[in-house]
Amino acid sequence: MSNLSVNTTQNVNLDYKIVGLGERIVAFLIDGFVLYMYIILVNAITSAMGLVFDDDWTVFGLRALIFLPAMFYTLICHILFQGRTLGKYIMKMRVVKIDGSPVHWSSYIVRWMLRLVDIWLFLGAVGILSILFSDKKQRLGDAASGTVVISTKQKTKITHTILEEVKDDYTPVFVNVTQLEDKDIRLIKETFLIAKQTADYKTMKQLRLKVESILGTNSGLYDREFIDTVLKDYNYYTQNM
């Protein structure tokens, strides 16, 4: 199993599973079915138009015009839906840059153009072989655009990061909590969680006293309530800056 490590804006490393050949083929078939249904619909509409227009060339031109979006289906979907087609959405996967940066539209164009080599010219043989023998399961289009297809079935829980769930109407208590850094919050949260799980109240008290000394405050809150508030305050300010 191949993984891709992405660093978030909160300086949290998240490991994503890189999607293998089987799942990508299923997503491709789903997209193919969508296009097939679109073609049937277009044929039905243009056939009905044939009853209105006597000129067959007019009907042919309208059919070709309506078919045009199907040719750009994957390109349009990837750009509009942040690296997803309907097939990728159903299979819970998306296209991302290897370095974790946002995918530029030009990268999607490169991937789309190389589908001609990866899929159509050689009946998918080039794409299949390149995915099978690539460390990051990339077809030629991925390699050329610096992208990779990852699974969005994320196993990383919020409790494993420095992030905290903060409601929109949350009111922070400690304004000077921003003098702490991500590494400080990560250490505080890890110590806090361990102390809660082991019912280590002595460590929790020492942690509260230490954080209070750093912030220069005497809150009067209980140990658990104080640390929980500090974590939420930090996330409130850093997420809304």
Rank of each mutant, 00 (worst) to 15 (best):
F81Y: 14
P102W: 00
R84S: 04
S101V: 06
D118F: 04
V110E: 13
R111Q: 04
M91C: 13
W105R: 03
F81C: 14
R115M: 13
G83I: 02
R111H: 02
I90G: 10
D118I: 02
D99H: 11
S107F: 12
S101E: 10
S106H: 11
I79Q: 04
L123D: 10
S106W: 03
I109M: 05
F122K: 03
L121D: 14
L114H: 09
Y89Q: 08
V96F: 09
D118N: 03
S101G: 03
L121S: 15
L121G: 11
S101N: 08
L116V: 09
F122Q: 07
I119V: 14
R115V: 11
T85F: 00
L121A: 15
V117S: 13
V95R: 04
Y89V: 09
F122G: 02
W120F: 12
M91V: 06
V110L: 15
D118H: 02
R94H: 04
I98K: 13
L80W: 09
L86N: 08
W112R: 04
V110A: 11
W105G: 00
L86K: 08
W105H: 07
G124Y: 11
L116C: 03
V103W: 02
G124D: 10
L80I: 14
R94C: 12
D118Y: 04
F122P: 00
D99R: 12
I109G: 00
R111E: 01
G124W: 12
W105D: 08
V103L: 07
V110H: 07
G87M: 04
T85E: 00
G124N: 10
L86P: 08
Q82E: 15
R84F: 02
P102R: 00
L121T: 12
G83C: 03
L86W: 13
V117H: 12
P102Q: 00
W120L: 12
G100D: 03
L121Q: 13
L123H: 11
Q82V: 06
Y108R: 05
K92F: 07
G83S: 01
P102V: 00
L116F: 14
K88E: 02
M91R: 05
W120T: 09
K97A: 04
V96M: 10
F81Q: 13
F81V: 09
G83R: 00
R84M: 12
G83L: 02
G100M: 05
M91T: 07
Q82C: 12
S106R: 07
G83F: 02
T85C: 01
R111A: 01
V96W: 01
G124S: 09
V110I: 15
Q82N: 15
I79C: 14
S107Y: 10
R115S: 11
S101K: 05
L123F: 14
I98R: 05
Y89M: 15
V95W: 00
R111T: 02
M113S: 08
H104F: 10
V103D: 03
G87I: 04
P102C: 01
G124F: 08
M93E: 06
S101T: 15
R111K: 06
D118W: 07
F122T: 10
L123G: 05
L123W: 15
R94L: 10
S106L: 09
W120H: 13
K88P: 01
V95C: 05
L116H: 01
L80S: 14
W112D: 05
R94A: 07
Q82D: 13
